[in-house]
Write a protein that binds this DNA or RNA. Structure first.
Lengths: 218, 218
DNA sequence: CCATAACCTGAATCGGGTTTCAGGTACGCA
DNA sequence: TGCGTACCTGAAACCCGATTCAGGTTATGG
């Protein structure tokens, strides 16, 4: 699951110039503020003023770092995408079988979702704000997934009759709706939620069934 | 799968008065126009003027039928929800085994999605416009689903180790992302798209694997 | 300790869309 | 054919926030 290739990160100003330490810090504060504000209010209710206020920065300063409201939204979406993919692949690092990898990947995804509800809010809303960005998000996740499934099929870990691309999309769909239902809808006042163990195990059972080759089942 | 109980439909004006034939027709034209306009532009880009123009109706008339832009959006979301559930349950009517029912339900869902891309656009965006409406949508679908799975477990058609609620959400997730990817992203210029057979069969294989009790697999 | 880049500021401009309102128009029943 | 009810209309009032701009402030290295 090649996560790093895609992600060259060098912070630039709106004009495309490289930034000094100070500038970079300001840019980061804007992105952090944007994560909270967009997550709380959604794109249209959110305003630049709120973002800059939360960042403790003057309104005009915003435009030194981003061309527009849409631009910071896209930057944030891409940043969240990079971070969730890293969260997943970090977690999967030690896995030996495919099902172990799936379990770890899902765990990483759910953990990240719990800690960063903005992921959902921003990615799902990007469909309306910046469709290309949304596609990028899903495609980047599916890519690695598909690759992993194909390899696991070669190993005999996964039902060889499954189409890796389609299967990758189904698995992503499972993660998406389960996360939405059990992590975003039931959010204990101000706490980071946790997927109930029973739910996680149930999901993994569905996934195991779906992928298992031959007749194994427990 | 009790679809009808939920759906009492009697068209009212914004003031809550019942409507004559003429009024009802106007209301319907507004909803139809809204379906297209919201699907094409999304909530915020869409404007009342565009909706009324498309409906061939004066701007002011709009407010005789709906309190606000948000109100027609919600009405449309609820209408689409009702229609997609009917599409699914109609298709499932003849099925005898659970897997047949799943196949039929998915087919109905995909057909409806292909014909009414507004379903996705509106339901997914309702998360930002009217969160309660979105939850209603998913919950209403899951409800019937869960019930069906429980019954199928009793019949021995479905792995008894699965949690019906969680499983219902995973299946809905599968449908959602597959529909998005293969029906909304690849939309032949102005034609109603169709899920490639290969994709449909692959999805059904995942579903069959996921639900199958014991060791059967083909 | 000065020069010069890099960075910061927020009042004012500007554009756009929802909603209201004051006044018509069509339909159907006596 | 007259009259009340239900329906229709679009110009203008109103609200709101993204973006610009003319001019400060801070850091750094010579």
């Amino acid at each position: 699951m090649s996560v790093d290739e895609t992600d060259a990160v060098e912070p630039l100003s709106a004009a495309g110039k490289p930034l000094t330490k100070r500038g970079e810090a300001t840019r980061t504060r804007l992105l952090e503020a944007a994560e909270h504000v967009f997550a709380e209010l959604g794109y249209h209710e959110a305003s630049i003023v709120r973002i800059t206020e939360r960042a403790g920065i003057g309104l005009g300063t915003f435009y030194l770092y981003f061309d527009s409201k849409q631009a910071i939204f896209e930057a944030l979406a891409i940043d969240l995408n990079r971070r969730v993919r890293h969260a997943m692949s970090d977690e999967m690092a030690g896995a030996t079988t495919r099902i172990e990898a799936e379990r770890a990947g899902f765990a990483g995804f759910f953990r990240f979702t719990a800690e960063h509800p903005a992921l959902y809010r921003v990615v799902r809303e990007s469909e309306y704000v910046s469709p290309g960005t949304m596609r990028l998000h899903y495609q980047r996740i599916v890519e690695g997934y598909e690759e992993g499934l194909r390899a696991a099929q070669a190993e005999g870990d996964v039902d060889p009759g499954l189409d890796p691309e389609v299967t990758a999309w189904t698995l992503m769909g499972i993660g998406e709706l389960i996360g939405m239902r059990y992590l975003l809808w039931e959010r204990p006042e101000g706490q980071v939620p946790r997927l109930p163990d029973g739910v996680f195990e149930s999901v993994m059972r569905v996934v195991r069934n779906a992928l298992a080759p031959g007749e194994e089942r427990r």
